[in-house]
Design a protein around this nucleic acid. Sequence first.
DNA 1: TATTTTAAGGTTATCGGTAACATTATTTCG
DNA 2: CGAAATAATGTTACCGATAACCTTAAAATA
Lengths: 340, 340
Amino acid sequence: MVTIYDIAAKANVSAMTVSRVINNTGKISEKTRAKVRRVMEELNYVPNQTARSLVLQQTKLLFLLITDIMNPFYTTLARGAEDAAKKSGYRLLFGNSDESLEKEADYVTTILTARVDGVLVAPAGDPSLPHLESLRRHHVPFVLLDREVPGIECDIVLGDSKDGARRLVEYLIERGHRRIAMVNGSSSISSARLRLQGYQEGLKLNDLPCDERYVYETSFGPLKDLTEMEQWIERMDPLPTAIVAGNNVLAIEAMKLLRDRGIGVPDDMSIVCFDDLGPYSESEPFLTVAAQQAYQFGYMGMQMLIERIDERGAAAALPWKKIVLPADLIIRRSVKDLAQ
Amino acid sequence: MVTIYDIAAKANVSAMTVSRVINNTGKISEKTRAKVRRVMEELNYVPNQTARSLVLQQTKLLFLLITDIMNPFYTTLARGAEDAAKKSGYRLLFGNSDESLEKEADYVTTILTARVDGVLVAPAGDPSLPHLESLRRHHVPFVLLDREVPGIECDIVLGDSKDGARRLVEYLIERGHRRIAMVNGSSSISSARLRLQGYQEGLKLNDLPCDERYVYETSFGPLKDLTEMEQWIERMDPLPTAIVAGNNVLAIEAMKLLRDRGIGVPDDMSIVCFDDLGPYSESEPFLTVAAQQAYQFGYMGMQMLIERIDERGAAAALPWKKIVLPADLIIRRSVKDLAQ
DNA sequence: TATTTTAAGGTTATCGGTAACATTATTTCG
DNA sequence: CGAAATAATGTTACCGATAACCTTAAAATA
């Protein structure tokens, strides 16, 4: 590998001069600068970021930790994060925790050893607390996405889960639905809890009972095994006329299950959910959803993170910021109108 | 930050001894080992991968460069790549070139300065050649995905584009279609060229004419502007009864466009395409596709890459490997049967 | 003209590890 | 019992860059 010393030797200058040319610092004569530049081109020199990171104590690396890389919510979010990172000259590492605490722990280790300058995290859930404490202890700035973790104060970008869920329920009620069920992610995840609350609130405000048998708690991630969900559906008697899914993945899995059992959507069962499906919903506009501004989650989260990093060492610490983005109700065809 | 020197001082040993404990090398007495371990825990020591990389001349970082992070083909591929990387103790950086040569060039710079140990690339197209030559010149091992680039020899994982496209066309012909059009990605992309060839071959084998007005070339990536495609559709007279899309994104955009113009799919127009839609197709099984084994692209590509890295410096260089994965025809509901 | 400034560049130490070699007891063996 | 082997640890140099300080000659100023 070509180093600044090779350049220095060939250009008859010191390594420091080469460094100055590269970074445009200090005073260098035009002649020397040109000579050094020429030699750099000749030798195809590329700076070694590793060496630079070691002495500068910053890697210009950021990390995005998400829980499901195949979920369009997160890929759209990743896109936003990438754009914002690139704009500020940062590179982006990424990891996919698969909603698993163990994988998340592995990634935290990676994050610490890689000495990244900051992290954007969608935590697996409340039990992620020790992971976040570990980041905090090692002074790694981080911004949380989509999920709050009790016990830690930090910058965060959230969606208005409660409001969104309530609006989904109210929409169903307007269409004449009375028996409304909910499949949700783990209650150890703040957004799942809020969506459940919004669901319950929606029912109560309309004087409908909350039957706990109509609520099924599982995981937000792709399910390995649908038999539990199947049993839940069998247990419900009478069947609900509509299901609210805690996110898009659950909605898709529920639909698949229902279809396989000969229960048509929306004819025999209506479905709505949180989060849109990315480009797919445009081609086959089917699912009615509370769409979150996924790109903004990533973009704004990344901006907050970079702000934190830049402000590091400032006299007065910035107060923690919390951004709550609304969810937009997008009405499509997955709900049957029973009110007519 | 806590360093091995801090540990060494507190444990009354030399830094080298600490290093040996961390890496399980050399001979260390159980007593010393235990003492060092205890101090490491006490001080919350985390090794500095940057320093390690500098001296070891390897970063344990790999890079995945894809062209569209919102396309389920690539996210599924990414998932496979991540799993394979993790299994071998590598971390994964990623970048999204957006089918743009400029962005790709930026990422190549990032890759070189970050001194990653290897790269998995889905190149933007044939003009990516200089980027790959640059990687080669700097001895960065790489494996190509999905697209060949004339002028460079390397390991590569490909799908059988020609065969897949021919089978899509033959399927359409079996259903009675005679006027079959194609929307395709840029002809500077090898897989687009092969898909076009497969399409033409399918027509010829069945004595159907290849009308070039039925072929429209654009980009595989999300289109900013659909007016050109709209004009193409208007130009075709008579309208085809079916369209083959070069990939899933194009199929979705075409469907959207057709629907907006009141042309129903599949009633007024049939559509098939390359690449599946990930989880969505399961919930709403609609598009008939030639599904590629996206996960395998990533997993096998990553395996080949790691093999290259491990074999580096071996006496005899391994011959370049080329894996061609078949595409599976998945019949769903987006094609109308005209043969009945 | 003597003294400061400034421009242009060089020297040295350092970031946090690890390889290679050196050292010192303690065993082992001929 | 002395030489050689081994176990356990320490020393030094280096990976490739940059910060901080130093030097020298030319230009500006008193």
